[in-house]
Design a protein around this nucleic acid. Structure first.
Lengths: 249, 249
DNA sequence: GAGTGGTCTAGACCACTTT
DNA sequence: AAGTGGTCTAGACCACTCA
């Protein structure tokens, strides 16, 4: 009588694909093939439920997910339409550095280059939204893949937000991994830019000064406070960011 | 008797926030505050439904969305746990160039620098997955903000996938906008890298040769076929990519 | 005012995984 | 074998918005 829940006739679907996914795929197919173009109306909950012979909730879930993904736009009374996609959003994966390197089969290496308490620059203070009495820990680290420089990490940690960091040497464990394990759950804000390598960065990354670097800056939040700010620099010639799988066109 | 559907006692929630969102927020709060740490068990559908006095479907939706967002991990029989977040996924906004520039208050400008039929390089052929007889249109365009170079766009279009492009001059409309309006719906694949400016790119972007450029490459698909491949280069000193709003930490 | 989407329920069956 | 998540239903009420 049914294949995975509810009541569905066997004739309607020999597949085990959930009904709401079948609906999503059918709608996407209409859009992909160009039958329904941007701005065109899309059948609503009731119509889809009727066509597919399912409950409105099932049709609704399919259409709601398509709306969440930006494929269609839904408005009460006005109905649903194929979205006018003016912006593309792009889901980029930023894995933990050691796992990323080991995933390629290379050997991961880590070196702490410098560690300093209290030497807080003015700009770091601003980026951390630090008060005048705020204390920070500053770290400079190098991550290596098969003994070659892979990423230069410069980091500030607000010691009020993560006090335990003061007593951690960071000689054997990278700050990223340490923070992931010691700061529970956080939001983040990222910038991606291209920069010319400074003399210091060039020396550590073993590139020419002025060489292009792909730089990722991240501010990490916990309850409105900036816990840490980090700058991750990669030699441009050896590194790319890729979109995660899935359709985010 | 209820405030937005179903049956809910007024005492339970004077707010108009949907029940499933209240549940999501409550779970997130436990995780954010560190009460539930990565790897810790999270109450399942039935338990949440009991605690919040709602139907299991409502609890299920909240937990399912948290799982979709990567906050928790769910496994049958084993139950739900706070996710061990080893990778960060990062949602980057790539708006349509003209809207992006005009949003800053600057005047948008566009210039077609070159247009060529059939001059398909070997590497372009490979990137487009083109057969030996495939024909392409090649374009080089410059996008300006207040008369200053902002983005250099180099593009190949597979004429078999978008035949109408052959008869479009692209002198007055950018290929991005044209394609958005003429190719219905597509998937895409992105690369982000830092590169040193070639002589040609430097001349057009008015930077020194070798200056760092932030380069975004995009392959756009329609039904398994590559419709177009584009390389968007920005002067590193004047451009950053930002994450879209929301928590993707 | 009427139609559309948004949410909720109570119950149901199934699939998967661990015990 | 049992417990958990995954899906589905039929019905319901509400909110928003357009005509």
């Amino acid at each position: 009588m049914s294949d995975r829940g509810g009541r569905r006739s066997a004739a309607e679907s020999a597949e085990s694909t959930p009904r709401y996914l079948q609906i999503k795929q059918a709608v996407l197919e209409q859009i992909r093939s160009g039958v329904w173009r941007p701005g065109d109306p899309v059948p609503g909950d009731a119509e889809v439920a009727r066509r597919f012979g399912c409950a409105r909730m099932t049709a609704h879930r399919a259409l709601r997910e398509l709306a969440d993904e930006g494929v269609i736009e839904r408005r009460r009374r006005a109905g649903s339409r194929v979205a006018l996609r003016t912006t593309r959003s792009l889901l980029v994966d930023v894995p933990r550095i050691d796992l990323e390197i080991e995933a390629t089969g290379a050997e991961y290496g880590y070196r702490l280059l410098a560690r300093s308490l209290g030497r807080t620059t003015h700009s770091a203070r601003a980026r951390l939204r630090l008060g005048p009495d705020g204390r920070t820990l500053w770290l400079l680290c190098l991550h290596l893949a098969d003994q070659r420089p892979y990423q230069l990490e410069e980091r500030w940690i607000d010691l009020a937000a993560a006090p335990a960091a003061e007593h951690e040497s960071f000689r054997d464990i990278g700050p990223n991994r340490w923070l992931l394990e010691h700061v529970p759950f956080v939001g983040a804000e990222h910038l991606i830019r291209a920069e010319a390598a400074s003399r210091r960065a060039a020396r550590h990354l073993e590139v020419e000064p002025g060489a292009p670097l792909l730089v990722l800056e991240r501010r990490t939040f916990r309850e409105q406070r900036v816990v840490t700010w980090v700058r991750l620099a990669h030699p441009g010639a050896r590194y790319v960011l890729r979109t995660a799988s899935g359709e985010h066109g």
